[in-house]
Design a protein around this nucleic acid. Structure first.
Lengths: 144, 144
DNA sequence: ATCCTACGATGGACCAATTCCAAGTCAATA
DNA sequence: TATTGACTTGGAATTGGTCCATCGTAGGAT
């Protein structure tokens, strides 16, 4: 129920931003919005084909790239080869990543890492953001 | 001068750890150790061929993978497609990355991000490490 | 409601980064 | 210095992603 509301918010927001809505784009947006884990492009494609079998891989990549440019989705680089897509771009958060299976969860640490980087460690850079990635084993991978 | 000492330390350490030493492995280790920027596998390969023209790409990948497993080198995932290799694994540090040109610098923020992740935000994971990546524009890219 | 047309979708070719594999080579031990 | 299991090789295969010419369609205009 809540998810449906959130989902239509996303679609509404995209439409309002002038994003031309097509069946394919809607499906990609819905797939991302319905998940709380961070999917790879291929996982998005698999889930999208379940709803819209004719959708093409290229279209999924296009839509993901556009959502990233619009700032609605975050691209997360992992040690895996595949990037993952984080639909929770509107709220600041960081990531907890299982080094065995690649699962990613959003986490909210305390403290402000930006404040922890003194000027003397900025080397003339204009620093605009931080990402914090915790690594470990998820419950499933710990036991098996 | 200092670099030569450090380099032989690395080779010594690897030998002591039972790492079978070959011309190819020595060259890869030397290339990494001689650089203060973080190279891609391909850049390592290029520099390695300068010293040992017959070395194969597969060997470079093998050696890099082994150095990573041994904990002597850190694998850094960037937004680029290629991973980068950070030979400074023995000292804890984080990264400052130019979002325009991809340059990476090592930085040493204050504070302990591991302490900033409460149990309630660990979701049953066994957390073993953190990486902090600051993003911004380097001095060169700020002005141009 | 229908027509236009610019923008989106398609799928197959292409590319870059990395891994795999079978055969040849060599470092370290005896 | 002979042996041998570990290392190296290069080429093929795989993976993740991009490009492009052509076809289709959302949404504004009529």
């Amino acid at each position: 129920m809540v998810r449906l509301v959130v989902m239509s918010d996303l679609l509404e927001r995209l439409r309002g931003r002038g994003w031309r809505m097509t069946a394919q784009r809607r499906v990609v947006a819905e797939v991302l919005d319905g998940e709380h884990v961070h999917l790879t492009a291929d996982e998005v494609y698999t889930r999208a084909t379940a709803r819209l079998p004719e959708i093409s891989r290229a279209t999924v990549y296009n839509a993901l790239g556009e959502l990233v440019s619009l700032g609605e989705v975050l691209e997360v680089a992992t040690d895996d080869r595949a990037k993952r897509y984080d639909p929770n771009a509107h709220r600041p958060h960081h990531h907890l990543l299982c080094s065995r299976c690649g699962t990613i969860r959003d986490v909210h640490p305390t403290g402000d890492p930006l404040a922890d980087l003194p000027d003397s460690e900025r080397f003339g850079f204009t620093v605009s953001g931080v990402e914090v990635t915790y690594r470990g084993l998820c419950p499933d991978c710990t036991t098996t």
